[in-house]
């Protein structure tokens, strides 16, 4: 949350028009955010199946770790809406919302999380290693290691004269890696088509950012590399969209990189099963009041673009899609063990 005046209905209409948003695009953003929310909740539900009452990380239909992005939908959707299919998204260990916002098929995404042969990577990668070549979507489970890869993808576009853009997501914790500064330097020096989106959810695991950052925000660091930077309200999809849309446009036109820092909050633990205890209930409640989905809903209402009924219908459709995806994924077959030995080399 970045404190700023809540616009009146009139101001809102002006802002929306200036951002180039219309009823259809705003409703589509609302739909995608709902899809992500329900997808995450459905995955969470299946994750806990077989893990209660006694939690066992290796039991149930989804094994291992999962990192949900409930609460952070606005950042993913705001930043990915201006993208085209040929643009690249480089994501992190917390990647479901980015994937869905980039248009990755929810069924294949869910199937990978279940380790099914119908998954994005036939079950080889799993939740921490999500890739979709067609949607141009990449991740890494090792935090802070993708910055230079994003720079490299942007270099590739520039080198070949393609007017595509790379959006690189990072957590505020990961941005403490030295490689973050290296990537900013290179991207600025070569004016690469890179948009860095920092999801500042205030914590890296159990560690609050005041314990690990010398400055409260990272966006200021961009300025020292001559990179324009925005601090935006990550709980407000319009705010995120406005900043990233112009950043992506500039990158596409050859004007180089931008950093967008979106202050947000994750509503769930760092991973499911996170014992918690490091955030106060009061803090959590404060952020829950800023839930980006009802917030956008109220704005749609204010603009006269979607009343209760329309929004309910959109939510229901999105929910059905997400739930169906998770169901189909869970019912899909597991890979044949022999596949384990295939595919090390291309």
């Amino acid at each position: 949350m970045v404190w700023r005046p809540e616009p009146s209905a009139e101001d809102l209409a002006v802002r929306i028009a200036e951002a180039g948003l219309e009823q259809g695009s705003l409703l589509e953003m609302y739909r995608t955010m709902c899809l992500i929310r329900v997808f995450e909740e459905a995955i969470r539900d299946r994750y806990w199946a077989g893990k209660t009452p006694d939690f066992n990380i290796a039991a149930g239909p989804i094994r291992g770790l999962i990192h949900l992005a409930v609460g952070q939908e606005a950042v993913a959707v705001g930043a990915c809406t201006p993208l085209r299919e040929a643009d690249v998204v480089v994501s992190t260990h917390r990647a479901h919302h980015h994937a869905l916002a980039k248009g990755v098929d929810p069924t294949r995404l869910a199937a990978e999380i279940f380790g099914k042969v119908t998954g994005l990577s036939r079950g080889k990668g799993g939740e921490l290693h999500l890739f979709d070549r067609n949607r141009r979507f990449l991740t890494s489970g090792v935090v802070g290691t993708s910055f230079a890869q994003a720079t490299g993808a942007a270099f590739g576009f520039q080198y070949r004269g393609e007017r595509n853009v790379v959006v690189m997501f990072t957590g505020e914790g990961a941005a403490n890696h030295g490689a973050f500064a290296e990537a900013l330097n290179t991207a600025s020096l070569w004016q690469l088509p890179l948009v860095v989106v920092i999801e500042d959810n205030l914590y890296a695991g159990s560690v609050p950012k005041w314990g690990t950052q010398a400055v409260n925000q990272h966006y200021q660091r961009a300025q020292s590399h001559n990179i324009p930077a925005y601090l935006v309200d990550g709980m407000d999809v319009i705010d995120v969209y406005e900043a990233t849309e112009s950043a992506i446009g500039r990158a596409r036109d050859g004007y180089g990189p931008t950093v967008v820092e979106a202050v947000c909050y994750r509503y769930r633990g760092h991973f499911e099963g996170d014992p918690g205890g490091y955030r106060s209930r009061q803090e959590e409640e404060t952020w829950e009041r800023l839930d980006p989905i009802p917030r956008l809903g109220r704005r749609l209402e204010q603009l006269g673009w979607a009343g209760d009924e329309t929004r309910t219908a959109v939510r229901r459709m999105a929910a059905e899609e997400a739930i169906q995806a998770v169901k189909v994924a869970e019912k899909s077959p597991l890979p044949n063990p022999a596949e384990a030995l295939q595919g090390v080399f291309a």
Partner: peptide
């Protein structure tokens, strides 16, 4: 065997 540890249970158990 010389493959990165796969995620899916039957693959993981195979290596």
């Amino acid at each position: 065997p010389d493959v990165p540890i796969p995620y899916s249970e039957p693959l993981e158990q195979a290596v």
